[in-house]
Structure formats: structure tokens, C-alpha cells
Amino acid sequence: MPLPRPRRTALALAAGLLIAPLAAHAESAAPAIEVYKSPSCGCCVVWADYMRDNGFAVTETDTEDLYGMKALAGIPDDAASCHTAVVDGYVIEGHVPAEDVRRLLEEKPQAVGLSVPGMPPSSPGMDVPGYEGAPFETLLVQRDGSTSVYARH
């Protein structure tokens, strides 16, 4: 009997977090990033396109169980956003700028990943008119659930 869709998606996320570091050793010009999103969220699609435009090989997976996935991936509620992605074993939560993801992949900190909590109107993929240049922060999410500022934009 097949697993229900949300459970399969959560298992796929867990498998991605475990297997991605092994796959990262293969030579590739574009880092592979898997984006888990709601099928009805337009800004998630815009962010995925932004990441493609910035040299990432993006795969999108629709799911109805994003909150379960966030919890499984180690994203605390106060760091949550609208979509969750995985790249090279790191979780990328929300509208994180491509340059922050590249820096994370270069530095390889011992952490869960990065988050731009909520949906800041000036973050990549949001681009709300009138908010150009409005400040927002990218957070580094630690394995114990704590966060620290990783970048200011």
C-alpha cells in the first residue's frame, strides 16, 4: 500500500538531507536545489525562477504538508516562511538571496541552513513595488534551533 502523499514528501525531504551531501561531491556546474512548496503559492515559483536565473539547477515539488516538512528539517516556527528547499544537505527556508546560498555552500558551517523568516516584501521572489531596498535579514539556523544573523540586505 503506498504512503499518503504528505508522508512520502516528508520522507523525500529526509532522504534529500541525508543523500544530498554525498551527491554534492559529483562535479556539477550548477548546484542542485529541491524546492518544496504549496501548489498554490506564486511567490515560491518566482523564487525558484530567480534561483535558476542565478545558476542553480532547481526542481520543484508541490506538497500540502509544508509545516511537517519544516519541523522534520529542523526549522523553528519563528524562522518559517512559505517554501522549504534543500541544497547540498542544507535547508533553505523562504526567500533567501542566491548570494547567501552560495556563501553557505562555500563556508559549509555546521548548521541546519538558512532562513529569511516570513515574506519580506523586498526579498528575492517577493519584489513588492514600493518596498525596493527595504531591509531584511538572512538567518543561520543552528541544529539546536537557535538562529543568528548571517547577512543583512
Rank of each mutant, 00 (worst) to 15 (best):
D88Q: 05
P21W: 01
L22Y: 07
C82Q: 02
D144A: 01
Y50S: 07
T63A: 11
A10W: 04
C41N: 06
G133T: 05
M51W: 08
G55N: 06
L18A: 15
A79M: 12
V46C: 02
D62H: 09
D78K: 07
V87D: 02
L22H: 06
D78A: 12
Y36A: 06
G113R: 01
L72T: 12
V46P: 03
R8K: 15
A15E: 07
A151V: 05
L66A: 11
P120S: 01
G68C: 00
M69W: 04
V86H: 07
L3C: 12
K108T: 00
M1W: 10
L66Y: 06
S146N: 10
C43E: 09
M126N: 07
G130P: 00
M69E: 14
M119S: 04
E106L: 11
G68S: 01
A98L: 07
L11N: 02
V45Y: 12
R5T: 14
H25P: 09
G55T: 00
E34N: 14
L140P: 10
R52T: 11
A73V: 08
G125M: 03
D49V: 00
V58H: 07
V112Q: 05
A14Y: 14
T9Y: 13
L3T: 06
T63K: 09
D127T: 11
A20Y: 12
L11E: 10
N54H: 15
H153Y: 07
P121N: 04
D144T: 05
D144V: 02
A98D: 04
P121F: 03
L3S: 11
R143P: 14
K37Q: 13
V112W: 08
L105Q: 02
D77L: 12
V101Q: 03
D49T: 02
Y50W: 15
G130R: 14
A98N: 03
C41W: 00
P120E: 03
A98K: 04
A14L: 10
D62V: 09
Y131P: 10
G55R: 01
F56I: 10
G133F: 02
A71T: 14
V45S: 11
F56L: 11
